[in-house]
Amino acid sequence: MPLHKIITHDSATKIYIWKIEESFEDLFDEVVLNDINLIRLNTMKSEMHQRGFLSVRKLLQEAGYSDADLHYDQDGKPHLKPNSQNIEPVEISISHSFEFSTIAISDKPIGIDIELAKEKVLKIASRFMDVSHLKDLSEEEQIRKATVVWGIKESVFKIKNEKGISFPDHIFENTFLLSDKKATAQLSFNNLIESFDIFFEEIDSNNSQNYTLVYAFEN
């Protein structure tokens, strides 16, 4: 079943992960899109992105929502309307990468990212992270850790979603081990320093490719 996993972080926070195995046609037949999102889907040039977009709608269904419950603000941040299960506003974050898509739903601001771990992340690591955090690690461990750090930066940015935030200049990960499965980070921006709790885990796609899931909460 393409619903790969549900992570219950706490009583008010769930992470839904979809493994995208269906064709575009099968996914399209199983969801109902509003007019705006149908136009958005048709403007996507890549079928991979289209399937990722549709699989997110499948995850919304798994969580008891529909495409009609999802809307985006002027900055592109997603929001959910309350449904029969939640009369209070709920927070949502969305990510997809190649074979997987994921959504996080919580009663507090949350940011989520899923990434395929690739060698090229090391070539750009100095552009977004403190590379001293990769010291004394094997190349495989460096790839894995740099992918986590990228996910940390993405997740924190998705919570704040403010123009001008720079990954290397404003978001800072604290020292952590891959075995910790959690970390902390700070956002230093507009004369404010904000702290975030980070959680991460690796997902095996069963074809020798590994993905990293990261999600963050403002502390």
Rank of each mutant, 00 (worst) to 15 (best):
K145L: 08
I203M: 01
L122H: 04
K182H: 06
S132D: 11
A117Y: 04
A104N: 04
I165D: 00
I152H: 09
N190V: 12
E115M: 01
I124G: 07
L178K: 11
S179R: 05
I143F: 14
E139P: 12
D130I: 06
S126H: 11
D204A: 12
A185V: 03
F176P: 11
F157T: 09
S179N: 08
F128C: 14
E162G: 00
I143G: 06
E162H: 08
I94C: 01
I159S: 07
S106N: 12
I198V: 12
S97T: 15
E139I: 10
E202Y: 10
N174E: 08
T147G: 11
I143S: 06
L187E: 04
S155R: 10
E173S: 05
S166L: 11
R144V: 05
D197E: 08
N174A: 14
I171P: 08
I198E: 07
D107A: 13
K135T: 10
D180M: 04
A125F: 00
W150L: 10
I198Q: 10
L187I: 13
D113V: 01
G111M: 01
K182C: 12
Q186N: 12
M129V: 15
K123H: 15
E202V: 04
G111Y: 01
V90P: 10
E139L: 11
D107V: 06
E162L: 05
T175V: 15
F176T: 03
K163R: 13
E194I: 09
F176N: 06
T184G: 07
S179W: 01
S95H: 00
S166H: 12
N161M: 04
K158N: 13
Q142N: 14
T102V: 10
L187D: 12
F200Q: 14
S132G: 07
L134F: 11
H96W: 09
K108C: 14
S106H: 05
T147R: 09
E201I: 09
T175H: 06
L178N: 02
K118M: 12
V148Y: 00
D180C: 03
I105A: 00
D180K: 01
K153A: 05
F200G: 06
Q142T: 13
I203E: 02
K160W: 12
F98Y: 04
S95A: 02
K145G: 13
A183P: 13
Q186W: 15
I203R: 03
I114Q: 00
